[in-house]
Nucleic acid binder design. Sequence first.
DNA 1: ATAATTATTTAGGTTTGTCTAATTTTTTAA
DNA 2: TTAAAAAATTAGACAAACCTAAATAATTAT
Lengths: 218, 218
Amino acid sequence: MLSIIIENYLKSIFHLSQNENNRITTTELAKYMNVKSASITDMMQRLEGMDLVDYKKYQGVILTNLGRKRAIDLVRKHRLWEVFLVEKLQFTWSEVHVVAEQLEHIHSEKLIDRLEHFLGNPKWDPHGDPIPDKEGTMETREQFPLAELLKGETATILGVSLDDENFLKFLEESELTIGKKILVNTAFSFDDSVQILANKQLINLSKKVAQHILVRKD
Amino acid sequence: MLSIIIENYLKSIFHLSQNENNRITTTELAKYMNVKSASITDMMQRLEGMDLVDYKKYQGVILTNLGRKRAIDLVRKHRLWEVFLVEKLQFTWSEVHVVAEQLEHIHSEKLIDRLEHFLGNPKWDPHGDPIPDKEGTMETREQFPLAELLKGETATILGVSLDDENFLKFLEESELTIGKKILVNTAFSFDDSVQILANKQLINLSKKVAQHILVRKD
DNA sequence: ATAATTATTTAGGTTTGTCTAATTTTTTAA
DNA sequence: TTAAAAAATTAGACAAACCTAAATAATTAT
């Protein structure tokens, strides 16, 4: 059974390399995980020996199939627990992450399968991220950053692409939550900010915020 | 924040010393936890320094108020999670313990308070053990080992006093679960076993089994 | 193409939590 | 009440997961 620490390494590598499925550098990983590069090198050599990563000196690291399987399993657990916390225990969007980070390390296949069923086999978590099934398969859908919408377009909020507590708090306070309909009132070219209409209110969103809200065009 | 390992030490000391509230020896604790006595001595010196236990060389160990508070908090979490597993996820009596042993180490006061409310503020866990409230107070009630009943007496099963997986499996298979009514048909003096009537069937119980089933006399 | 800079690895050290073997203290039995 | 046995502690070692400082490799800028 993998230690919690090793599980966290796998998850971090997975998150950093999933966009491009490219090798990531030890420095990148060190920054992301808040440990020193020397510790990364150390651990990568151990994980290589466990066939969890493909690591070559000075060439960075990438997950093996086994490592990816384990990482996706953690993502599955994390996201199912997030659904539980929000739907059953009324946690807010911004509160769930810290707790789910702990819960994802509970080892029990029966627990997670039963939890999935108890929650009604959800396919998306409270941030709009897909929940992998037992085989690691996740659903996909067309979605865009709100920032890409043009003046006058309408859309529905599907999720977010940034898991920052204050960002999520801001969205909660602005009531910009999943399912909400929005209309782009103005797109300002001078700073790429946008003004949207949501909940019958005009709300200004910075470029960064608009980039990390994911929507479906209506 | 206490490590999982330290939390397990506190819980073990608590369980071993709660009957008599007496000091326990390092050897007792070592056997219970499946580690060597030397490791216990080592750890006790650390815990003494953290004001979690009162430990004196060659005189055994007992929890301080602080240590007991922490241990009861773990018991609270363990038992609430057991209720969740049984009531919401349909785990059986004998399956819950291993998973709850992991879940009890999740750190989040909000999580456990919300869970308690979600479960309807239960006062007893699936084994019939009392669930401490936030202040550490638990309910009490009159209960006896089934072994103490006399021929002809009727009773209701309240719980068990042994957390052994095979013992619990046996009870599940015999449908001797919480709330079941029983009647003592015969008490055999030669081996202290008893024959009871439950679920319209005659069931023979060894002395050990009868000692670890807790009942209320009707 | 070489020098300077940056990235990465190696070497050696620390803490936590365990172990075995040796020693000391306590308990039990003669 | 002393000797033998049992229990408990100390000493020293080890693995995991980190660290700092030094060395080496790769990249970049001149």
